[in-house]
Design a protein around this nucleic acid. Structure first.
Length: 359
DNA sequence: ATTGACTGTTAGATCAGGGA
DNA sequence: TCCCTGATCTAACAGTCAAT
């Protein structure tokens, strides 16, 4: 095998061109540029194993059920456009607000279903239960166990990827608020809360240059849907006003003071904008990570949160090589950034902003 | 670990409506 | 007409996968 990174990483002339630089929370680390020759991927086709019939009365779904439904409005109203999809919907002249949903699941989708059903259980218990549930769809127990183990490993890999991405984005983001939001029954249903809040954040990001990342949470003890997020809100881009509100917390059974924003209080309900101590970023991230893992929910990101920036790195700015096979470069805190032979200065917020971005 | 390719989702851009 | 806000459309990208 003759992949470039397996040859000599260190270039001649004492510098590394186009490295990907990330911040691990205390140091900047550069990954030297590597390339791998293109190799087409095999397409794996999963076997269809299960069909379920459901007769949901759409207008009778509660907001919560609607939010939890795997069928989006699009899938229900325009099934003919998804002819090759495994999830199909038929409307056989049934009453106006009723349609037959025929859900065909392949083995992988079935695995996903059982995996999310047992997400809150211990790993070994979860594995056992998924295997039992999937046993009828395989020839024997060994085949079932193999399939489940391979897919558990896949989920684990994917989670690691997401975690790495999230931490690297957060470390370069310069967040200044940790925000918790929920909704007032008088203003929203869970569904409308989620939809409008996402729209609102999207607009703040575009119009006021807010950056954010966060997760939705509905833990068993706190039934109400919350949004927890890390925000970078520029000084001149605040909406509404901040007010200290002191009230009784039913969760902690004690009085608590929150920094409530009037804009979000009026539109959505209770909220808390905690100013973020940079030293506590790791702790806040851990908090978000907990929900990321437990709920299987995806992270809500604003765009423009890079994982890396691209810079050439001079040999004199490298402390040592680190990582697997010493392929990463640990940099001095005041390392210089270079863009195609031009020194764009010592690393700083401004430097990072003008360097080439890499998602 | 990292990479590039693929794909479904979602965030940036734009539209539309309302109020001043 | 201008400004602000919420909604909608679609291009960009997050998530995933397989290779290594």
């Amino acid at each position: 095998m003759s992949y470039i990174w397996q040859q000599e990483v260190k270039p001649k002339g004492g510098f590394y061109p186009d490295t990907k630089v990330y911040f691990d929370g205390s140091h900047y680390i550069a990954i030297p540029h590597t390339e791998r020759p293109f190799k087409p991927r095999k397409k794996h086709i999963e076997e269809v194993v299960s069909e379920q019939n459901k007769w949901p009365q759409l207008e009778e779904l509660s907001a919560e059920e609607a939010a939890d439904s795997p069928f989006t409005e699009n899938e229900i109203s325009a099934p003919e456009e998804k002819s090759d999809a495994l999830i199909g919907v038929e409307n056989n002249n049934s009453p106006h607000n009723m349609c037959q949903i025929t859900q065909k699941l392949d083995k992988k989708e079935l695995f996903e279903k059982f995996y999310s059903e047992h997400i809150n259980e211990k790993r070994s218990e979860r594995r056992k239960k998924i295997i039992e549930a999937m046993l009828p769809y395989f020839d024997d127990r060994t085949a079932t166990e193999n399939y489940v183990d391979v897919n558990i490993a896949r989920k684990k890999r994917n989670l690691i990827c997401r975690r790495v991405r999230m931490v690297r984005k957060a470390n370069l983001a310069d967040f200044n608020f940790f925000v918790t939001l929920t909704y007032d029954d008088k203003k929203h249903t869970e569904c409308s809360f989620k939809k409008q809040l996402k729209t609102c954040f999207r607009n703040m990001s575009y119009r006021r240059n807010w950056k954010y990342m966060g997760v939705w949470e509905r833990s068993p003890e706190k039934k109400r849907l919350h949004f927890h997020g890390l925000f970078n809100i520029p000084d001149n881009a605040v909406v509404g006003k901040f007010q200290e509100v002191t009230d009784y917390s039913t969760n902690h059974h004690a009085m608590q003071t929150i920094n409530q924003n009037t804009y979000f209080a009026e539109r959505f309900g209770r909220n808390d904008f905690k100013e973020l101590d940079k030293r506590l970023l790791g702790e806040s991230l851990g908090y978000l990570m907990k929900y990321l893992e437990k709920t299987g929910e995806k992270i809500v990101y604003s765009k423009g949160l890079p994982q890396f920036f691209i810079s050439d790195i001079m040999e004199e700015d490298i402390i040592c090589t680190i990582g697997q096979e010493n392929k990463k470069l640990l940099l001095f805190d005041d390392f210089k950034c270079w863009d195609e032979g031009v020194n764009v200065g010592t690393v700083s917020k401004a430097t990072i902003a003008q360097l080439r971005k890499s998602s």
